[in-house]
Design a binder for these strands. Structure first.
Lengths: 118, 118
DNA sequence: CTGTATCCTTATTGATACTG
DNA sequence: CAGTATCAATAAGGATACAG
């Protein structure tokens, strides 16, 4: 019953992306890194708890789908849904912008760098 | 000296956009709502403190410029810089995506709506 | 009008241990 | 391997009062 009213459309988008790791997760999953363990290894600073939480929220928002192969040992994969890809396409632009911004800041003497997790 | 290392470009972007109100602020300012008071009125839930903080961070990241007309009573305007517009262009896509997502959720029975602050 | 300065509350995230 | 549960830490934001 708690009606959420936004002022501008982007608030709804940011609600879906809210969470420290969601944008990165989407980029990684989009490029084929789609399992719990390998995501944990790619992002050493995310905790198991938060990883699960944010993946589940993306699933419940229709951006990701969770595929459980019912194997032993457990095997689960996350994939971007067709609907989700309408969002991840834009995220790729943001990714590119970020890369340029890093270069810009480096040129300005700021100490930032970009490792390769992709 | 604290070197920041990102894994994926989008982390740098999200660092620039981090803060509950920054994306909305950019949309509003882009469309001509560029003063402290009118932004406060358009977003009744942002506090003066946070508004100032986030505007200043956007200025220091080169996305906005702050123009002080040195009048009395004080008059200050915020404008998107040319560099910033490379980012706000993408934000407009996110804005549009959010509008569609709201409709999608409404169709699914979720109680969300979009007021008009623009 | 446009902000600063404090203090306080809430939201998010992290660490760790344990289960199917 | 994938995930849950619990507790502790931190970050982020809000309320209020005051200043140029």
């Amino acid at each position: 019953m708690t009606n959420t009213t936004y002022h501008v459309g982007i608030e709804a988008t940011m609600a879906v992306l809210s969470g420290k790791w969601k944008p990165v997760l989407l980029c990684l999953i989009q490029s084929g890194n789609n399992r719990n363990g390998s995501l944990l290894r790619a992002l050493p600073d995310v905790s198991q708890k938060v990883l699960t939480e944010q993946l589940r929220q993306l699933v419940s928002d229709g951006i990701l789908e969770r595929i459980d192969y019912n194997e032993k040992p457990a095997r689960v994969e996350y994939h971007v849904t067709e609907y989700g890809s309408s969002l991840t396409k834009i995220l790729m632009s943001l990714c590119h912008w970020g890369e340029q911004d890093i270069r810009r800041k480096q040129a300005a003497g700021v100490s930032v760098s970009l490792g390769t997790a992709l």
